[in-house]
């Protein structure tokens, strides 16, 4: 699904990713863990095409195509979804407008007709129940006045409605209490599928209690320094990152 090869990225002249190599096979869930400042969010942003991140070397191949040559909106329409660490508030743009616009943009891209408004609403309502979100949120501005937890749930709602092929969730667990974490994890788990890949970017092992990853990678100083199965996350929880920072140097 996704193949990152020797990726170098600078932000404002400073190199953040220094030769990152990572492969996510179709149907798998991978966790990318690492200490603060290791480049986790940079990776998530580069994959989504956010401006301000300069790729100075390496390649990213998504479903056999050069992902980096696509504009952000094209990536989204091709099935790449970024769950934001800090979801943006957009007062005045109603949640349901955004969902519908997003779905229709992807459908148009695939040559499908626009979604039926009535059917669409019933799908959205069903997913909202899954995310334990109040229906009144639909008619509110995007993330407007939402609590931290509500914003994260809204990200997952968007993901559920958009049904991406590749979802990159950037610290979706941060700022969630344990009940909200379970709801979010449940939402993510319902999307696990043989034709879909998920990348969970996180500091803590906690999220991985609820979303069991197929592989865990440790990102330190812009490179993957170790990969393993889910037990690696437990080891990190126990030992911290310090022992791996030495290896990266």
């Amino acid at each position: 699904m996704l193949k990152i090869d020797n990726l170098h990225v600078t932000v404002e002249g400073k190199e953040i990713l220094k030769g990152l190599t990572l492969e996510i096979p179709t149907g798998e869930v991978h966790a990318v863990m690492g200490p603060n400042g290791s480049g986790k969010s940079t990776l998530a942003h580069v994959l989504s095409g956010r401006p301000g991140y300069q790729v100075t070397g390496g390649s990213v191949t998504y479903q056999g195509r050069d992902l980096l040559s696509l504009a952000p909106e094209e990536r989204a329409r091709e099935g790449v979804f970024l769950g934001f660490q800090y979801p943006v508030e957009i007062p005045g743009v109603n949640n349901v407008y955004l969902l519908k616009a997003a779905v229709n943009a992807a459908r148009k891209h695939r040559g499908l007709p626009e979604v039926d408004a009535f059917e669409f609403l019933s799908v959205v309502r069903e997913k909202m129940r899954l995310m334990r979100m109040d229906e009144s949120m639909l008619s509110r501005g995007v993330n407007e006045g939402f609590s931290g937890g509500e914003k994260k749930r809204n990200e997952i709602l968007q993901m559920l409605v958009l049904e991406p092929r590749l979802a990159v969730l950037d610290e979706t667990d941060s700022g969630l209490d344990i009940d909200a974490l379970k709801v979010v994890a449940h939402g993510v788990n319902t999307l696990r599928a043989a034709d879909r890949s998920l990348v969970l970017v996180t500091h803590y092992q906690r999220l991985l209690d609820y979303i069991i990853p197929d592989r865990v990678h440790v990102l330190v100083q812009g490179r993957i320094v170790r990969s393993g199965d889910k037990t690696l996350a437990l080891e990190l929880e126990r030992r911290g990152y310090d022992w791996l920072i030495g290896e990266a140097a």
Binding site: E73, I90, A101, A102
Partner: peptide, 26 residues
């Protein structure tokens, strides 16, 4: 805000229009 909308697949034209419209909603 603009990037958030693009990351959801909206074209730059639609995203800009939507934000302008939202700006007047007050």
């Amino acid at each position: 805000m603009l990037f958030y909308l693009l990351s959801r697949g909206l074209s730059p034209e639609v995203a800009q229009r939507l934000l302008k419209w939202a700006f007047l909603e007050d």
